[in-house]
Design a protein around this nucleic acid. Structure first.
Lengths: 157, 157
DNA sequence: TTTTTTGCAAAACCTTTGCAGTTGG
DNA sequence: CCAACTGCAAAGGTTTTGCAAAAAA
């Protein structure tokens, strides 16, 4: 036994694809919900609720922030979305892609790098073996210095 | 070369011990500042600014929360204190002890386990080798399940 | 005496909640 | 039609800031 069971990846690829999942659970595909989903599809990485509400710099229609929060929460319950906390700012939301991903967050430049979850297996194993502790990087990702910033830090800063 | 240089541990053992460090930088050892320090010495683990302001359940004198925040920030600048973020709640503050410590935070029961920083070297190495990313667990510790909660989770939940 | 620090109040920031009205199915 | 949802406004929790009064050196 080396790895804990990993939940099956959900491979949603479009808003319509998600519609069924929403209705299956008694939910409704409203305009506001559609909007949150299209924002998440339009975003290239994890984004804040406020970025979504403001329309992602013109890429989608702006909307009410409390509805955005409620919809993100709803979609998270469906397994379609997840959120994580990086640094001092607001939480960041992303679609749960078809592939299991974890994130490495640079605390210096803010870059958020997605990595295949499986590539962190040795790391999880090392921590479990040494401390009897099972790390979960999904909600509170690994924070540190990306390659560029690590290099900068060694020289001048 | 396997490890990044680690900042020299500061081995403050009492409030008076820290007084010199404060004055060296033009700071003053006021009653409010003394109070924050004694709260940190009295605490058995990382505590929130509000816990300190409220007097740590009667163990120290209560004080104004904005002064607590300002003093924690000041002491952090001196290298005497550090803070970390665990879960959704307020930030937690602790004295920078003589030994380098990192923390493992259980996202289920809230337990904060201190571990010797050196014991995480293999973990840091693995991440740096695989991703060219230098993790720093000081400010955003490793979150997951402690041994007890991991066991519970496997059985009933 | 001079500069730092305090205590209070108010604001800022992120997120949640109450509610009357709207809408999807 | 009716439960689910919306938009607005208000509140909640954490942290920061402005400012006149107090205190350390």
């Amino acid at each position: 036994m080396t790895e804990a069971p990993r939940r099956p990846p959900l491979a949603f690829t479009s808003v319509e694809d998600i519609a069924a999942a929403i209705r299956d659970r008694g939910g409704r595909l409203t305009a506001a919900r559609r909007l949150v989903l299209s924002a998440l599809f339009a975003a290239e990485g994890p984004v804040s609720a406020e970025q979504i509400a403001q329309g992602l710099d013109g890429r989608v229609v702006p909307s009410d922030i409390s509805s955005v929060y409620r919809n993100l929460e709803h979609l998270e319950g469906l397994g379609v979305v997840r959120h994580m906390h990086v640094g001092h700012g607001p939480g960041l939301y992303a679609l749960e892609g078809g592939t299991e991903r974890e994130f490495l967050v640079c605390e210096r430049c803010g870059r958020v790098e997605a990595v295949e979850a499986a590539r962190l297996d040795p790391v999880r194993d090392a921590i479990r073996t040494s401390f009897g502790f099972v790390p979960r990087f999904g909600h509170f990702p690994i924070v540190g210095l990306c390659d560029r910033c690590a290099a900068d830090e060694l020289s001048g800063s």
